[in-house]
Nucleic acid binder design. Structure first.
Lengths: 343, 343
DNA sequence: ATTAGCACTTAACCACTGAGAGTGCTAAAC
DNA sequence: GTTTAGCACTCTCAGTGGTTAAGTGCTAAT
């Protein structure tokens, strides 16, 4: 990263912060006034011209002030993270009280979390429940449902209960189902869904096992039961962001709504980010999703050891209050992590 | 309803249809040309002035053409329904193929249905899964989960499986749970959730029963297990509607997004509508929700006998292609009904 | 009862203007 | 050598006025 002298940095930060607070391009006069540098606008102008040359700022037009580029935001955010600026504030305990009551239903928990986040931040709140790949099976129960249909109930370690109706093609007694469940529990409980899927494929290739009708049936059930693809994605707060001055442009609103309707792509993105520790920030053009190149994402994975058990975050304009966003996301992620750990 | 002579009606319909197809106020010239009334613009003008006086049309400003009022749309829609205009088209079978594969998971089924509807209509697709009040319990299973926590699995007649984790405050053996489940099944299976809730309250008031610890526990479990409030609401297609000329206005977009984020209110609305038969249409100001007074709703309940088992529909601008919307909603509702009946 | 003709109204478009904000550059000051 | 005051320059924005086109309501003729 380019090295900037202290004064230049300060001015860059001043521009960024001012722009975050007031959505108009910021001029040299404003910087000189609001922040007591003891420098005249003319000097600031020179520095700002340098910053523009280096790609941290840009002018919408000749006679306007400057606006940070994505690179400018990036530099600013790095300094925030370096100083752990967001850690100095107090946690949001009172606001999580509501969430405490929802701990037993993880889907509702995550969906309410997005609402809390969006109300706090005035940006979009997002959350993704644990992806099954890394979810471990605690117990499986198989119940006869109707005719040849059975219901597989999967209990996971994190309080998620998933169920799936499976058509077998032939009737089967509850007794047999119980035996199958017993076999599957002894074989698979404690393993992640991913491992189970692999094991199933392995087992199925062994011919001798396939001769045992019960086991072969059991494996077929597994194949269907464990093919959830991803965690659920929750998004809320669209009406919040529409009040921002950044969204007076219809085109931008369309882009955003297209982006959040394409849940699959966001899920894939969050999936990658869930591997990493701490708060992750993606600013505008850094984003690989085309529709998201005008927006920023601030997320943090909830982890247990190094196993991700969910992701919470914020989507907003690149002109985002990063400090506040990081602070909210960091706190929320830690809160959820703690809550799920207590199980 | 005001009686209009045939010619006046025809002109009203012409204005409405033209406006639905081209989003500009329609003038007397256009009506005279596009539809072969054999009348001059001047005559049409007189009729249109009458229609305005009666409240079916209005002029945005003096030198503009006319636009239908909500009352105008209502009159038009009544005639559509009276003639069953939408029935003449062929069903959308090919497009439902995708939905067929999802019949075993009612939540995914409904959420995908909204997507299908919004792609077909270019408006918002909405769907509400069966509300528990009228869902009948087929079987309840209670499984030990962890410590004092148990999981109640509710099997309903329509392939919905709901589960709920309940903290009991004291450990309990699986054997006891089985006995409780047995008791509850014999007592409640076949009844609607609503009935069960009432019964539970009754039972709990009988003192002698409360002496039996097991039964009193069973009733407590029920109290918690059956307190789902409403069905889930699914909405999709926001990016579709943003392409409509009706949504160039930022204010309207905000209103719409606020309306669909306030799911609770919409659920209550759909709840009422789910009692009625056939396609229901609410036009603009007819709507009791303030945020929805600029939009129209076209919905139809999926029913089994007179028991509603879900609602599907469309939300769009009042300038909606009602004929198409009714046609899509009607077909989709019938399709889902048929599909769920086959269980 | 219908229609042609015409005066009237209004939004939309365009070109123009002046004010205001902010710049870059140069020359003076520290 | 760095900082600053001064100034000419550029560009947006809001407001103005004039023109056009669309569509009306009214009146008088058919």
């Amino acid at each position: 990263m380019t090295m900037l002298d202290e004064r230049t940095k300060k001015i860059l930060y001043a521009v960024v912060e001012n722009y975050i607070n007031f959505p108009d391009p910021v001029g040299s006069r404003t910087v000189a006034k609001s922040y007591s540098f003891g420098l005249s606008p003319a000097t600031i102008r020179n520095v700002m011209a340098d910053l523009e040359e280096m790609g941290f700022l840009l002018q919408p037009h000749t006679s306007a002030g400057r606006v940070p580029t994505d690179m400018g935001y990036r530099f600013y955010v790095e300094s925030l993270v370096a100083e752990s600026a967001f850690l100095h504030k107090e946690p949001l305990r009172e606001l999580y009280k509501r969430l405490e009551t929802l701990r037993d239903n993880i889907d509702i928990l995550f969906s309410e979390t997005t609402k809390t986040i969006s109300t706090l931040s005035h940006y979009l709140g997002i959350a993704m429940s644990p992806k099954p790949e890394v979810t471990t099976l605690k117990k499986i129960e198989i119940l006869k449902y109707k005719d040849d249909k059975i219901a597989a109930i999967l209990f996971t370690d994190k309080g998620m209960i998933k169920n799936k109706v499976i058509s077998l093609g032939a009737e089967i007694t509850q007794k047999d189902l119980n035996r199958i469940a017993g076999y599957l529990n002894s074989e698979f409980s404690g393993h992640t869904f991913d491992e189970i899927r692999q094991k199933v494929v392995q087992e199925m290739s062994k011919e001798k096992i396939m001769c045992d009708r019960l086991i072969s049936r059991a494996l077929k059930i597994c194949q269907e039961a464990f093919c959830f693809l991803y965690g659920d994605l929750f998004v809320s707060g669209l009406s919040e962001v529409l009040d921002l001055p950044d969204f007076t442009d219809l085109k931008k609103i369309k882009e955003l709504s297209r982006a959040i309707e394409d849940k699959h792509t966001i899920i894939k993105l969050l999936d990658k980010l869930s591997e990493l520790d701490g708060v992750q920030i993606i600013i505008g053009s850094e984003n690989s999703m085309d529709e998201m190149k005008k927006f920023s994402i601030v997320v943090s994975a909830c982890k247990e050891g190094d196993r991700p058990i969910g992701v919470v975050g914020i989507i907003g304009p690149t002109r985002m209050n990063y400090s506040k966003a990081i602070y909210i996301v960091d706190n929320t992620a830690k809160f959820i992590t703690r809550m799920l750990a207590e199980r």
